[in-house]
Computed example of a mutant assay.
Amino acid sequence: MLDSLVLTGNVGNNNANPLDVLGAPDSKFLAMGGPGAYVLLDMGVTPIVNGSGPDLEIREQGTAAGGVDEQYRVLISDSTDPASFVLVGTGTAFSLLDIAGTGLSSARYVRIEDLSTATSNSTTPGSDIESVTSLHASGSGSLPPVTGLSYTLTGNGVRLTWTRMTGSGVTGYNIRKSTDGLRFDSNASWTATDLESAFLDTQTSQSHVGDVWYAVSVQYTGGESALQVVHVPSGKLTLHDQIVHLGDSSTPTWEQPSPSSNKLTLTFNLPEVPRGPTVKLNFQLFDVDYSKNRLVINGHGPRSLPVQSDVSWLGMSLIVESGQFLQGTNTIEIYSRDSSGGNAVNSLDDFQIGKIELTRMNP
């Protein structure tokens, strides 16, 4: 601890000791007091190191202590010069922060500034900072975190597994879920006993919409370990939700009467290659007469778009190998073609397509 300014709020501060921020999570916390308050920490032999994923964990007690989750600002530096500190970001409750955007590969000093006015009239005013942990520094933290954390997608939900901790002092595990991988509730979403090494979240199916992150920590008699996080990518991604008329003629009774082009290009990002051997491309199709309309994925193919010759909307699917997709930027091109698969002028198939989705099929 190098420096601090702790405020009293409107009715006094019963948790005004800055030293309560130091050490592993132990339910002791500093109530900073509100905007204008700050605490400056020297991380010493466990500096903040830029590694893979988040680098810094900050715990603001909030609802875990019967209060509210409150916001704070985090800055870092390798010098105590106030002008040298660089903003990492803001946090609320339990937050994981990545220092990659600061330009620093490591930092010895952490400055936390209170932003909260939500509890000014309580005896624990402002953000309630319990601990600050470097997630990549050697020897960081006094309570060992969980190891071997992984996930499996099943027909019943997302199954988490980890290596069961042995030794005295382990009382169980806390499990939290987040939709951004950076902010987790101060209260655990679920708990597991010290004899368990797995958990099944039945609320999230294998075709869930939107990425989710799970954090597992070890609960000890003397406190809680840092969070270990696993990312579960979305099982379904909407690639295009508008109606498009492909072809070269005009059909006045259609919802999209004028052909926008003979080609539709979709560009999207995937955080990782889809799991399992195959995925499914889902479409809503209207009046697809020919079997030679092309679909090209990342330059591979072409494949044939399913035929749906009714003048009405019908859901259709195409099974595709997961290996056709890339981590990062992907492109799907859909072409209108004539009956022989060519692009003869005034002979292209006119059809409508909409609500294009990529869905995971297998765990």
Rank of each mutant, 00 (worst) to 15 (best):
D3E: 04
L5W: 04
T8A: 14
N13E: 03
N17K: 10
V21P: 03
L22V: 02
G23S: 01
L30C: 03
P35Y: 04
P35F: 07
G36L: 08
G36D: 12
L40A: 01
D42Q: 02
M43D: 00
T46D: 08
G51T: 14
P54M: 07
A65F: 10
D69L: 07
Q71F: 09
V74T: 14
L75V: 08
I76E: 05
P82K: 09
S84P: 06
V88H: 03
T92C: 07
S95G: 07
G101S: 11
T102E: 00
T102P: 02
I112C: 06
E113K: 08
L115A: 08
S122W: 04
G126I: 00
H136T: 09
V146C: 05
G148D: 00
N156F: 10
R159S: 13
R164Q: 15
T166K: 09
G172M: 01
I175W: 05
R176W: 10
K177V: 14
K177D: 04
D185A: 14
D185C: 03
T191R: 14
A192N: 09
T193N: 11
L200Q: 10
S207R: 14
H208W: 04
V209N: 12
G210F: 07
V216M: 08
V229T: 08
V229Q: 04
T238R: 09
H240K: 11
Q242R: 14
D248K: 06
S249E: 15
T251E: 12
T253Q: 13
Q256K: 15
P257D: 02
S258A: 12
L266E: 01
E272T: 15
V273H: 07
R275I: 14
K280G: 07
K280R: 15
Q284W: 13
Q284M: 12
D287W: 13
D289T: 09
D289K: 11
R303S: 12
S304K: 12
V307A: 05
V311S: 13
G323K: 12
E333I: 08
V345F: 12
L348A: 07
D350F: 05
Q352T: 03
K355H: 12
E357K: 11
M361N: 11
